[in-house]
Lab assay of single mutants.
Amino acid sequence: SSRTRFTDYQLRVLQDFFDANAYPKDDEFEQLSNLLNLPTRVIVVWFQNARQKARK
């Protein structure tokens, strides 16, 4: 499967949200999905990866 290429804007929004809340609710994932024009699944995985990185 091909990797999603995030724009700088998408990454900034995701990172800002993550800094405020590492565990979004379903409706928040949906809002981010609509805002960033990305599939919810891609955003869910991004947050999983970000939490892994933050733990190191």
Rank of each mutant, 00 (worst) to 15 (best):
S1P: 02
S1K: 06
S1C: 14
S1R: 10
S1I: 15
S1Y: 06
S1N: 14
S2Y: 14
S2F: 07
S2P: 09
S2T: 15
S2C: 09
S2L: 13
S2V: 13
R3F: 15
R3T: 15
R3Q: 15
R3V: 15
R3M: 15
R3D: 15
T4D: 14
T4Q: 10
T4Y: 07
T4F: 13
T4E: 05
T4G: 04
T4I: 13
T4L: 09
T4C: 02
T4S: 13
R5G: 15
R5T: 15
R5S: 15
R5C: 15
F6I: 08
F6G: 02
F6T: 04
F6E: 02
F6N: 03
F6W: 02
T7N: 03
T7I: 03
T7H: 02
T7M: 04
T7D: 06
T7S: 07
T7F: 02
T7P: 01
T7G: 04
T7Q: 04
T7A: 06
D8Q: 11
D8W: 04
D8F: 03
D8A: 09
D8P: 06
D8L: 05
Y9R: 07
Y9K: 14
Y9F: 04
Y9E: 12
Y9V: 08
Q10G: 01
Q10E: 03
Q10L: 00
Q10H: 03
Q10N: 01
Q10P: 00
Q10D: 03
L11V: 13
L11M: 15
L11A: 07
L11S: 13
L11E: 13
L11I: 13
R12F: 02
R12A: 04
R12C: 03
R12M: 05
V13I: 05
V13D: 02
V13W: 01
V13L: 10
V13A: 12
L14R: 00
L14P: 01
L14A: 02
L14Q: 03
L14C: 03
L14T: 01
L14E: 01
Q15S: 07
Q15P: 01
Q15W: 07
Q15I: 03
Q15G: 12
D16A: 05
D16E: 09
D16L: 04
D16W: 02
D16N: 07
D16P: 00
D16I: 07
D16M: 05
F17G: 04
F17W: 07
F17E: 10
F17R: 14
F17P: 00
F17Y: 13
F17S: 12
F17L: 05
F17K: 13
F18A: 06
F18N: 02
F18C: 08
F18T: 01
F18W: 04
F18H: 06
F18P: 01
F18G: 00
D19Y: 08
D19F: 05
D19R: 12
D19K: 08
D19Q: 06
D19E: 14
A20M: 06
A20G: 09
A20P: 03
A20R: 14
A20T: 11
A20V: 06
N21S: 08
N21H: 13
N21W: 02
N21Q: 06
N21D: 05
N21R: 06
N21A: 04
N21I: 04
N21K: 14
N21C: 06
A22R: 08
A22T: 12
A22G: 13
A22S: 10
A22Q: 09
A22Y: 07
A22F: 05
Y23L: 08
Y23I: 14
Y23T: 11
Y23P: 02
Y23V: 10
Y23R: 12
P24Y: 01
P24N: 00
P24T: 01
P24G: 00
P24R: 02
K25P: 06
K25Y: 02
K25T: 08
K25W: 03
D26F: 05
D26W: 05
D26M: 13
D26Q: 07
D26Y: 10
D26K: 10
D27A: 09
D27Q: 09
D27M: 11
D27K: 09
D27G: 14
E28Q: 08
E28L: 02
E28H: 04
E28I: 05
E28P: 00
F29S: 04
F29V: 10
F29R: 05
F29M: 06
F29T: 06
E30V: 10
E30T: 02
Q31P: 01
Q31N: 15
Q31F: 14
Q31H: 08
Q31T: 13
Q31M: 08
Q31E: 10
Q31D: 07
Q31Y: 07
Q31I: 14
L32Y: 07
L32I: 08
L32G: 01
L32K: 00
L32S: 01
S33G: 10
S33E: 03
S33Q: 03
S33N: 02
S33A: 09
S33Y: 01
S33L: 00
S33K: 09
N34Y: 08
N34T: 08
N34D: 07
N34K: 14
N34A: 14
N34P: 09
N34H: 04
N34V: 12
L35W: 08
L35E: 10
L35F: 04
L35V: 13
L35I: 14
L35H: 10
L36V: 13
L36D: 00
L36Q: 00
L36S: 06
N37I: 06
N37E: 11
N37S: 10
L38H: 00
L38V: 07
L38P: 00
L38D: 00
P39I: 01
P39E: 11
P39H: 08
P39W: 00
P39Y: 00
P39V: 00
P39L: 01
P39T: 07
P39S: 13
P39D: 15
T40M: 14
T40S: 13
T40H: 09
T40G: 07
T40K: 15
T40V: 10
T40R: 09
T40D: 05
R41N: 15
R41P: 11
R41M: 12
R41V: 14
V42N: 12
V42T: 15
V42M: 11
V42H: 13
V42I: 12
V42R: 10
V42Q: 11
I43K: 02
I43H: 00
I43C: 05
I43V: 11
I43M: 04
I43T: 04
V44N: 09
V44R: 10
V44M: 11
V44K: 10
V44D: 14
V44E: 11
V45T: 11
V45S: 12
V45D: 14
V45Y: 07
V45H: 13
W46K: 01
W46E: 02
W46I: 00
W46S: 03
W46T: 03
W46P: 00
W46F: 06
F47H: 03
F47V: 03
F47I: 04
F47W: 04
F47R: 00
F47E: 01
Q48W: 03
Q48T: 08
Q48G: 11
Q48D: 14
Q48Y: 04
Q48N: 06
Q48I: 10
N49G: 13
N49P: 00
N49C: 08
N49E: 14
N49Q: 07
N49I: 06
A50I: 06
A50N: 12
A50R: 11
A50P: 00
A50Y: 07
A50K: 10
A50L: 08
A50S: 10
A50V: 05
A50H: 06
R51S: 06
R51G: 03
R51H: 04
Q52Y: 09
Q52V: 14
Q52T: 11
Q52L: 10
Q52A: 12
Q52G: 10
Q52M: 08
Q52F: 07
K53A: 13
K53N: 14
K53D: 15
K53L: 12
R55T: 11
R55I: 10
R55G: 09
R55C: 06
K56P: 12
K56R: 11
K56L: 04
K56D: 11
K56S: 14
K56Q: 08
